[in-house]
């Protein structure tokens, strides 16, 4: 079970790590690092799963998430939210904004893989 994953993240090292982990299992991974143009990229690529960082230059991940959920074509899109701030407040915000899953950095590689798989399967 593979598919397309869009990774919206601004930290180059993390992009490289996630790309490596997922593509090793056959996933096709695109990355995008600008918050302002993220929504547009999601529409154009129409990925199976989106991995979205909460803190992006230009626009916050929660904002992007909220906009995606408001639009019908992306309302049901599986989105995995990543955040480096491991506070409860952040988890609640992510859930309210409509994240399918939420994960705190740092994560284990297996965790990411499992989560992407589960989201694609659902």
């Amino acid at each position: 079970m593979t598919g397309q994953v869009l990774l919206i993240e601004d930290e180059p090292n993390i992009i490289e790590a996630i790309k490596f982990i997922l593509s090793r299992e056959g996933w096709q991974v695109f990355s995008h690092s600008n918050g302002d143009t993220a929504v547009q990229t999601v529409r154009e690529r129409a990925p199976d799963v989106v991995i979205l960082d909460a803190m992006l230059p230009g626009r916050s991940g929660y904002d992007i998430l909220r906009e995606l959920r408001e639009s019908t074509e992306t309302a049901a899109l599986p989105i995995l939210m990543l955040t480096a701030r491991g506070q409860t407040k952040d988890r609640e915000m992510a859930e309210r904004a409509g994240a399918s899953r939420f994960m705190t950095k740092p994560f284990s590689n297996a965790e990411v893989l499992d989560a992407v798989r589960a989201l694609k399967g659902a």
Binding site: N13, A17, I21, R24, M55, A84, R85, Q87, P106
Partner: peptide
Amino acid sequence: FLSQISHELRTPMTSIRAFSEILRDT
């Protein structure tokens, strides 16, 4: 700041953990 410091600490740690796992497991 607390969020920031958390972010600043966790971001490099994420890379370190991810790549160290890659090195270990691959």
